[in-house]
Design a protein around this nucleic acid. Structure first.
Length: 156
DNA sequence: GCCAACGTTGGC
DNA sequence: GCCAACGTTGGC
């Protein structure tokens, strides 16, 4: 089983939106980056766990946990000219972009902020805290996953 | 709102 | 196939 961190802007789609979905399940669409698409295609498996991360917000950080509940399949928003994610170079005969389904597991007890993860030597190898990283889906090692869950229990 | 970093596009 | 221009991401 693998672990992931998946970013979303709370103004667009946040952890509360996922929690409110029927069965807490929704597709993770709109990925338009080849590295992420390849991770979806080659590395994601049903049962994987993922952190829900709020980006582009006042206090960026991890706000929840979710579970991967499907393998990757074509992202239909790419076929829809009315969608903000429309990509004329993707068509149903030869889909360029993929999405998959995730299910809400829980909110974290508190926001585990980017600032504290950056300051933590145990997490210094995470692409999340590395300069210039722009991926919206990031692999997390088992050790990092466990460490972040420990961080969650710390309260100042 | 600014801007650094980086991916993509397209002319040549 | 190079690379400048452009667009996007996302922290601050």
């Amino acid at each position: 089983m693998a672990y992931w961190l998946m970013k979303s802007e709370p103004d667009v789609y946040g952890i509360d939106d996922l929690a409110a979905e029927p069965d807490g399940t929704e597709h993770w669409d709109g990925i338009r980056n080849y590295q992420v698409r390849n991770m979806f295609r080659d590395q994601f498996a049903v049962g994987d766990q993922a952190f829900f991360y709020h980006s582009n917000t006042k206090v960026p950080g991890i706000v929840g946990v979710m579970e991967v509940v499907s393998t990757a399949y074509p992202d239909h928003t790419a076929f829809d000219p009315k969608s903000g994610y429309y990509d004329p170079k993707s068509d149903p005969e030869n889909p360029r972009w993929l999405m998959l389904d995730v299910r809400y597991v829980r909110h974290t007890e508190r926001v585990i902020t980017l600032a504290e993860m950056k300051a933590d030597p145990a997490l210094s190898e995470m692409p999340l805290v590395r300069r210039g990283n722009r991926l919206s889906v990031i692999p997390v090692s088992e050790a990092e996953w466990a460490h972040i869950l420990e961080l969650e229990k710390r309260h100042d």
